[in-house]
Design a protein around this nucleic acid. Structure first.
Lengths: 202, 202
DNA sequence: CACGGACTGGACCGCAGAGTCCACTAAGCT
DNA sequence: AGCTTAGTGGACTCTGCGGTCCAGTCCGTG
């Protein structure tokens, strides 16, 4: 159901359902999240779930994915859209780590959703892939901005370097999860950023 | 059931079940793998599944995880246990990429199993974490070997660098999956190896 | 060859969880 | 106030899947 067609009250209920589902998915995965537990957590009923998401669980999960995407970008704002100075990169890095700490677990909502959804729902997979791509493009744009301002060697491939940086984030999280500590993530990030500095022109 | 106590025929059936389950899990995740599809793929019956794995699906999945671990290390042999020269590192890198290509999809069996299992089965999570740790230790040992042979600056933290390299692998795969291409993995690997070369003493 | 244990086949059970239905209440509009 | 639509509650159905049971077959050993 399109949020536009809802009253204020409806929008709030709808948003509450999405947020609670997102938390449960992050904590227990898609399979571990049932309509009943969502219902319990949101103090709603089955009929409401289907009222707001006629497509059932599938649709709900897709909405969650989209919502996680906006959450992710919001957490990195405004730095992610800047990245034109070394200070901006440093602040971005801090906001990222803070975001993951805030989640309470070393896992990326988008990354883990991608792993779960990969083959169960191609539509969802596409949506996540495009979020990932947008993220990469924003980082690449930052690299280019550093090149434009003369901070980084114009010869480096911005797209490629952006992929390396995102891979460091995702991979760092994969290693941090079992470790229950952020050090692998920080090490991977440090190292990825070092690449930028090595291509530094100052 | 302990493989020791089985006849040759029993061991083969048991192994067939594990391999088929491993493939299905890689393709469809744990949730998408049912005892019925395993039964169909292996031309066995429910009773056999429980005969060889009295603990049911949980036990079967744990066995799969252990098996994937040995598969992973076997694919990297013998280079992973050497890594004492630049050529060895290069060959290791090639065997890794070949392994993931051979799987037919850009995903790490261990990494994706870890993502799925994280909160459903703590026992499984521990087992995967220890596989991951062993992998990291082997890479770290390789770095130390490079330091011992005087190829790499002894000042670098081998553990930390090993984590960076594994993060590059895992993260590269995360990005490669939606891309349906290995370039992010290769980029991340290239970059991680560059760190080793920058610490090169020759 | 007969006996016992490993191995196999498939019918069956029970339950969790997705999805349906209908009756009810809240709230805006004339 | 009365009508209409949005929103809510919860009982109910049905299917998929994990797990059980028991009867049968294969195969090595005395």
């Amino acid at each position: 159901m399109d949020p536009q067609d809802l009253t204020e009250r409806g929008r709030r209920t709808r948003a509450r359902i999405i947020a609670a589902t997102g938390e449960q998915i992050l904590a227990s995965g898609i399979g571990g999240t049932t309509l009943d537990t969502i219902r319990a957590a949101t103090l709603t009923s089955k009929s409401q779930l289907f009222h707001y998401f006629p497509g059932g669980k599938t649709e709900l999960v897709r909405e969650v994915a989209a919502w996680e995407g906006t959450q992710l970008f919001a957490a990195q704002a405004p730095e992610l859209d800047d990245l034109s100075s070394w200070q901006s990169w440093e602040r971005w890095r801090e906001s990222l780590v803070a975001y993951y700490i805030g989640l309470g677990r070393w896992a990326c909502p988008i990354g883990s959703l991608a792993a779960h959804a990969a083959l169960t729902d191609p539509d969802l997979e596409r949506s996540i892939a495009s979020t990932m791509k947008l993220w990469r493009e924003k980082v690449a744009a930052g690299v280019e901005r550093m090149q434009a301002t003369g901070n980084v060697d114009p010869a480096v491939d911005a797209e490629r370097l952006a992929a390396v940086i995102l891979a460091a984030i995702q991979g760092g999280l994969v290693l941090s999860q079992p470790e229950r500590s952020g050090w692998p993530l920080e090490a991977a990030l440090d190292h990825a950023f070092a690449a930028l500095h090595q291509a530094s022109t100052n």
